[in-house]
């Protein structure tokens, strides 16, 4: 049994719940065990780095320090050096912090000085930070994955979308290529899917630009969706919560912006693995996507039940910081200006 430490990242608990659920569903057939880093904190995404250097890297390094500690407490066969991050942005931040603390020792010294204020420390280079798909392709192996397939995805045309933060900058040389890596293609083929030639596989989804400069982001989303559509993809497969969120949740907005009418579902690669392993859509978070994959999956005989969208009043003690009505009020005030 392969055992690793897991850094789930904030998205896995909210916007990318489907990723978490599907990941958990494929663990058992593949003989994998993850132990979550206790009390991990946010990696800072792409935001913290643009404010303050030392706090940003200290924020990231707290997780590395916690992981090291936890490994120290693990014993016997379960000992590992590997921290698995399923989110590409988290993976990049953790891996990059580890690398830069070695490349510029002065950064490592300062970060450790900050960590010491919390009674922690981290020796750069002692952990292996790896992404989930890296573990699946290189540790578990395509043979084992192929062997677990009970419902091959024959006839499903998938655009493999790796995104940018996974294969780049890749200071640890983990990937076959920075521009056209084949890991995701190979994995999807092992599931029986028809993998289309998708030249934009590592192009950017817009990242945080959906929040701060939507027009810029919409164009990037359009390129990805339009090319996948042009090449006849039924759906896109992704390895990153942010990519999924941008292409899924903002596709409608993007269509609106350009006057287009694309309907390109995007699922996590783990959801497709789960399907191929014979799990039911409901166990894999399928149906949580906003651009629904129901028609695409119907092509391979998978029926996605229509989920009952929960409604009803929220409990008072769960109240939002800002109710929607109040928001409208703000809108008007802004409009009057």
């Amino acid at each position: 049994m392969n055992k690793y430490l897991l850094y789930p990242g904030c998205s896995m608990e909210s916007s990318a719940k489907a990723y978490m659920e599907s990941m958990n569903a494929i663990m058992e057939p593949l003989d994998l065990r993850f132990e979550e880093i206790e009390d991990w904190n946010c990696c800072g995404a792409t935001e913290y780095l643009g404010i303050n250097l030392i706090p940003a890297y200290s924020l990231i390094a707290r997780n590395l320090a916690l992981a090291s500690d936890q490994i120290g407490r693990m014993n016997g066969m379960g000992r590992t050096r590997t921290v698995v991050a399923p989110c590409s942005a988290c993976y990049l931040n953790l891996a990059k912090a580890d690398y830069y603390m070695q490349e510029r020792p002065s950064l490592g010294v300062k970060v450790n000085e900050a960590l010491a204020a919390g009674g922690l420390q981290y020796k750069p280079g002692t952990l292996d930070v790896r992404h989930l798909i890296d573990i699946l392709v290189y540790d578990v192996g395509l043979e084992k994955i192929r062997g677990s397939v009970t419902r091959p995805l024959h006839g499903l045309k998938v655009a493999p979308y790796m995104g940018c933060m996974l294969p780049r900058p890749d200071y640890q040389h983990r990937w076959s290529d920075h521009e056209h890596p084949t890991e995701l293609d190979d994995l999807l083929r092992a599931l029986g899917a028809e993998v289309i030639d998708y030249p934009l596989t590592t192009s950017c989804c817009g990242g945080h630009m959906t929040q701060i400069g939507p027009e810029t982001a919409f164009e990037l989303i359009r390129r990805l969706v339009a090319d996948a559509d042009d090449r006849g993809a039924d759906l896109m497969a992704t390895v990153c919560p942010m990519c999924q969120m941008n292409i899924d949740a903002y596709q409608n907005e993007m269509n609106h912006h350009f006057g287009t009418d694309y309907h390109m579902p995007i699922l996590f690669f783990t959801q497709l693995m789960g399907l191929a392993f014979g799990r039911e859509p409901g166990e894999l978070g399928i149906g949580m996507e906003l651009v629904n994959a129901r028609n695409a999956l119907a092509r391979i005989g998978v029926e996605v039940p229509i989920t009952q969208e929960p409604s009803g009043p929220r409990k008072k003690d769960e109240g939002l910081p800002m109710p929607r009505r109040w928001t409208r009020h703000e809108v008007r005030k802004e409009a009057v200006k």
């Binding site: 521009e179 030249p199 934009l200 192009s203 390129r223 339009a226 090319d227 042009d230």
Partner: peptide, 8 residues
């Protein structure tokens, strides 16, 4: 920077 066949 790149040569591509992904038309825009």
């Amino acid at each position: 920077a790149e040569v591509t066949n992904a038309a825009r």
